[in-house]
Design a protein around this nucleic acid. Structure first.
Lengths: 343, 343
DNA sequence: ATTAGCACTCTCTAAGAGAGAGTGCTAACA
DNA sequence: TGTTAGCACTCTCTCTTAGAGAGTGCTAAT
């Protein structure tokens, strides 16, 4: 439905516009790209492209601007074509930088989001792996004060979760040791979430054989998991906001609030985490209205084939998709590499 | 040097300007505040105040705007006069909200900064207590993988610090227990920092009596403290940035970077933490040039008379100092209360 | 000491003119 | 039939100008 030349012109317009957010005119296209035809011809084709919904005009006598549909076409052909691969050197640098802090899962993913942002000038987002999907390694329970204990949960994925929990009635350190011992011998190697299911089933079927302590164990375990430290690291919000298309500060207020709102982003990220590989959400494709002028390039990451979380870049719809996609892809690979090494 | 009426007029101008950042004219003052004199008189006095450096004019035929010196005068007399005390109800609400999360020191101070920001519409900053100044309660060491252990440090102040540490050569769980046991029996109740000093001294004087393990203990302890999770929570950056005086987005770029830069803020906060009580830094009083158009209202907080950290509000120089001061004061008290209860 | 009156200064806004960029259409051309 | 040159037209942007409005400083009168 779109001949080769039209596609090339569409690409030319989009790339121009990505470089600088000014409407692209026919004359400019002939000057900058060598199609061997006159501006008038370009104009005709651009009019066609507009009719098909790939381009639009801010006003009658302005150049053309890509529509979301235009970007979509562009991105799809980008995803199908060759991947513009990244400099291996850069990847090495990132791996090296991440290597140093892989033992601190939060610092690690904070650095991931910072790296994404720094390299792209868009907003970088990194969701650390959920404790729930990690592999239970060890539980340690320590008496803290009369009515409170400290529970420390270790997983194979270098995730440590430690919390002060309220327990009533009080438990002795011996009790705690027995509970922890039970958990550690029985459940080591299962996923944190599986254990939760098993525990709740167990209490139904076995009817308090282990008596009190099993119940207490479950309570503690639940309490420990109740804290959703479902963090999301983001960096570079302001970089995006200071791009020329957002120079009118009043208009971006809502967008800012939406982007800043971690919960809202989390919802999107959760959706994304269902699908593997790089995904691109362009402008109004996003269900969140406030984000209609932004695009998201996201990818899941994981180790050993297991999806563990999502990283993403958020930028204006006219973002450099080619760069963003390859960057997200690369960083995702770096994460996998680093995580796998630490196994 | 300043008669009563002049002071009142200065106050009037400043309060007007705080409400809305428009230069304040003589006519406006007579209308809004009832001094029983004509605009001409006000003009004379304002001219005097300008001469003394408390007010200035954006241009010859505009109203007056307070200078930093004007604000300083205003704030000082504010601090000397009655404290505008806060609604006890609000304080109760805050205490209640904080109560629920006092066991998670990070969530706690994240909430503090959010509360400060939400209530004032300025930027709220909260520095959680440093681990170093907390009281050592217990150290727990757990073997994690061949060459790494998990160290968990508990303090009386509900601070948990847990890290994966690399240890070489490997240590058995027994070794770890001995090290932890040693630390727990010897040092419980001292401050985390004191212990550090004692340990290093000890190794010098006692010359490796405890042999290897003491050295290992010190190494682990140092390693654990090496991570400066000297966090600073901030909330509401954008609220400040979207105030009318910053409507020109390009001009606030540097300021944004300065404010966002936690390290820079940390330096200021560190300075502030030396002095007790509420402190106000107005505009250019701040050594950081990028922050010359902002003011900071800060206060230390602590429990049992011990200074533990700093909270602050950052806003434009025309911020509502009265409100900001009493708010910071109140929140500081709420923190103290909550922390003391948990002892 | 205070005030009314007045000339003056500066900003802000609206309106208008002209330049510039880019389009769509038409008619000619290969 | 696809391409192109030419041209009138549209819309934005910028610059200028003029006038309104707000507020001042000064002077002379109270």
């Amino acid at each position: 439905m779109l001949d080769e030349r039209s596609r090339q012109i569409l690409n030319a317009v989009i790339q121009s516009y990505i470089n600088r957010p000014d409407p692209v005119g026919s004359r400019y296209v002939t000057k900058k790209y060598d199609f061997g035809v006159s501006p008038a011809t370009i104009r005709n084709i651009m009019a066609d492209l507009e009719e098909m919904g790939f381009l639009s005009q801010p006003h009658t006598s302005a150049g053309r601007v890509p529509t979301d549909r235009g970007y979509r076409f562009y991105v799809d052909s980008l995803l199908n074509d060759k991947k513009c691969s990244f400099d291996a050197q850069i990847a090495q640098d990132i791996v090296k930088r991440l290597e140093g802090i892989k033992n601190d899962i939060n610092a690690f993913f904070a650095e991931v989001s910072a790296t994404l942002s720094r390299m792209s000038n868009y907003m970088g987002i990194a969701q650390p792996p959920k404790t729930e999907s990690a592999t239970f390694k060890k539980l340690e329970l320590i008496r803290y004060k009369e009515d409170s204990i400290v529970a420390v949960l270790l997983t194979n994925e270098s995730i440590i979760r430690s919390r002060i929990l309220r327990v009533a009635p009080p438990l002795t350190q011996e009790d705690l040791n027995r509970i922890a011992g039970y958990m550690n011998t029985e459940y080591s190697g299962l996923s944190v979430d599986e254990i939760r299911t098993i525990l709740t089933n167990r209490i139904k079927t076995e009817r308090v054989m282990w008596d009190n302590l099993l119940v207490r164990a479950i309570k503690i375990y639940e309490q420990l998991l109740a804290f959703t430290d479902n963090e999301l690291f983001m960096e570079g919000l302001f970089d995006v906001m200071s791009m020329p298309e957002f120079s009118d500060i009043s208009r971006i207020r809502d967008a800012y609030r939406a982007i800043k709102d971690k919960h809202m982003l989390l919802r999107i990220v959760e959706d994304l985490s269902k699908t593997e590989g790089v995904q691109v959400i362009i402008g109004a494709e996003n269900p969140i209205e406030e984000l209609n002028r932004f695009s998201i390039v996201a990818s899941t990451y994981g180790a050993c084939g297991k999806k563990m979380g999502v990283i993403a870049l958020i930028g204006p719809t006219r973002m450099d998709y080619s760069k963003a996609i390859s960057m997200v892809e690369m960083v995702s690979n770096c994460i996998c590499e680093t995580l796998n090494e630490s196994e």
